[in-house]
Amino acid sequence: MTAFLRRRSLLQGLAGGAFVLVAPRALADLGSRLDAALAERFGERRPEQGGVELELSRLVENGNSVAVTVRASPDEPTPAALHLFMPRNPEPWGTSFQVAPPALAEFSTRIRLAGTQDVMAVAEWADGRLGATAVSVMVTLGACADDLYLEF
């Protein structure tokens, strides 16, 4: 093994170690915020993967207004409610949309995103079953210091 390769594997090892040390904690924080929000809405129940579609841009120009569409998957029975969670927002629970026939299980709105995060849509069926889909959204930062300008 050449010195170069050894150095590369060392770097990889360091990078991997850093990941182990740092990432789980950040993920756990986000995960626990999401988990707390889910527990508040659903008690002990947790969603399975799928059953709901979530449409929004992967790259967002301004987190103050992000177009989003949530709908139940076409192959699923109509759920009783659709929910949106934004785990990195000060309040992760975004909205809950109760729906009854003849309304379709689908809505479009505009949401706030306090930074890059995985937005999660949850469908809730009358029998208590939950299905979820998450989309990673990157929120870019504007120029200058936007938070100074409440009065101007």
């Binding site: 103050n64 207004s65 992000v66 949106l84 934004m86 927002n89 000060p90 309040e91 992760p92 629970w93 975004g94 909205t95 809950s96 949309f97 109760q98 729906v99 009854a100 026939p101 003849p102 309304a103 379709l104 689908e106 809505f107 479009s108 709105t109 505009r110 949401i111 706030r112």
Partner: peptide, 26 residues
């Protein structure tokens, strides 16, 4: 719609200012 509650939505602070909402029904 026609005497039936078809949509009942809870809004939280994560909804943008000047809220927009679109939905469909049969």
């Amino acid at each position: 719609y026609a005497e039936r509650l078809i949509i009942d939505m809870e809004l939280r602070p994560g909804i943008s200012a000047n809220p927009y909402l679109a939905f469909r029904f049969v």
